[in-house]
Design a protein around this nucleic acid. Structure first.
Ligand SMILES: NC(=O)c1ccc[n+]([C@@H]2O[C@H](COP(=O)([O-])OP(=O)(O)OC[C@H]3O[C@@H](n4cnc5c(N)ncnc54)[C@H](O)[C@@H]3O)[C@@H](O)[C@H]2O)c1
Ligand SMILES: NC(=O)c1ccc[n+]([C@@H]2O[C@H](COP(=O)([O-])OP(=O)(O)OC[C@H]3O[C@@H](n4cnc5c(N)ncnc54)[C@H](O)[C@@H]3O)[C@@H](O)[C@H]2O)c1
Lengths: 208, 208
DNA sequence: ATCATATTGTTCCATTTTTCACAATAACAA
DNA sequence: TTGTTATTGTGAAAAATGGAACAATATGAT
């Protein structure tokens, strides 16, 4: 069982690179082409594939279309992934208006908010009152949510949606949430991303 | 020289946890308190500190205020970090309106856009035409930028700001940019974050 | 003053991740 | 057909990361 997050991220990158190559008319690809496209090494590409039992052809590389099929299946992209956004504020609405997820088979199906002023059922992505979240999650069998509520509300909103059936949450609030049993929380912490960047810029500056 | 990104992320977490503890009135802390707060082990906390020459007191733990001073200095938080946003669209304006960075000593000082309709010099964070970016970066000695332009414009915008003196970029466009010499690009790729989450949710589902 | 105790700092060990290296082999050329 | 070459797949080596263990020691108790 693979627990290596970086490995899965690389699979996503290979997949994206393969679509670009396919769009350019390529039908096969070698491990070193892929390595170049995503910025890695050829042996790591092959090792990653081998972990998932993906094989190519000696001297012939990999068929792009069948490779994409396999990667897409591993990454759960053989079915449309329905996602909710909880918190229709600045970040939440930016995400709901973003069209880029759709080409990745990810569809934001609804937003939820406690502020009555934010409710808008006729939006392309409808924004509904939080009270309706539980029923919505259950009847539409949603498993994934993006959490974009104020920090103070994050844990209770998380508990609510997980109790309703959400299994995976991408959390934007910059604090450590306790994931309810059976659910996974990943964080996007932009403060920390910036701090990290600043650190490495400073280090580069000093060693220069 | 530390190249371990996770280690630096942990330093940020320690720092955040320390502020919370400080706000609760604590003046000292033990490695296992910190480990609990951030979800790690006590030896890792001590190891992280030791890497940076931070020492505490046998049996006495660490003084929170002096620990914070040291962490803040390592993380470059002893001076206000001025940051630009390039691209005042959905993501860019969400970031410019966000007040949360300020308490972290990060100040978004300006946004830049090519669309004349976006220009607004009297905004709390002024939004200026891209042509002015170079002069602004130079005269204000900005080193860090957030890139939130459409995918197609990302590489050229990156080249422009790095040529003007930007050393570190947090890029939201879901593609691999070529960092100009002497600059660092870190990516926030939400598509990939979601794919990753979906993968691990599926795995958990299956092994259940 | 002595002892017991709690906690650090660091060394050593285990695990994970990446890279190297090369045998196996499919494709192609002559 | 035979030989040459390019590329995979993988086992072994190396590097990086994380965790356990424990000696050193400051603190507080008796
Ligand atoms: N905006 C940014 O650029 C940015 C950057 C980094 C981190 N964040 C984090 O993202 C989160 C959201 O930030 P934002 O700027 O979008 O905030 P915001 O205040 O603009 O929006 C939050 C929304 O959540 C709604 N809400 C409050 N409690 C709720 C609940 N219990 N259930 C459902 N909805 C609820 C509010 O009505 C509001 O519409 C915060 O945790 C913030 O720290 C935001
Ligand atoms: N909005 C989201 O939720 C979201 C999610 C994931 C990724 N992204 C990525 O973030 C980036 C920005 O997305 P967005 O939704 O904010 O886009 P957007 O179209 O809302 O905004 C982009 C802004 O950049 C400006 N712009 C275009 N070219 C420019 C240039 N050369 N220099 C300066 N400004 C320029 C445009 O005028 C516009 O204001 C895109 O790469 C997108 O793929 C966005």
């Amino acid at each position: 069982m693979i627990t290596n997050k970086n490995c899965i991220i690389r699979l996503s990158r290979y997949k994206n690179a393969l679509y670009r190559l396919q769009a350019l008319g390529f039908v096969k690809v070698f491990s070193d082409n892929l390595a170049d496209s995503v910025g890695g090494t050829a042996s790591q590409v092959r090792k990653d594939f081998s972990i998932f039992g993906i094989s190519g052809n000696k001297k012939g590389g990999y068929q792009i279309d069948s490779l994409l099929e396999k990667l897409n299946s591993i990454l759960g992209k053989d079915q449309l992934q329905k996602v909710l956004v909880v918190g229709a504020g600045h970040i939440g609405s930016a995400l709901m208006r973003y069209r880029g997820f759709e080409k990745e088979g990810i569809k934001i199906v609804a937003g939820f908010d406690i502020d009555p002023a934010k409710i808008n059922r006729s939006n392309p992505v409808p924004i509904l009152p939080l009270d309706e979240a539980k029923a919505f999650i259950k009847s539409n069998q949603i498993r994934i949510a993006i959490l974009a509520v104020p920090d103070i509300a994050a844990q209770s909103a998380l508990d609510l949606i997980c109790a309703a059936g959400i299994k995976g949450v991408l959390n934007f609030a910059p604090l450590r949430l306790k994931a309810p049993d059976g659910s996974i929380v990943n964080n996007v912490n932009l403060e920390i991303e910036l701090e990290n960047l600043i650190y490495f810029v400073n280090v580069a500056e000093k060693t220069k």
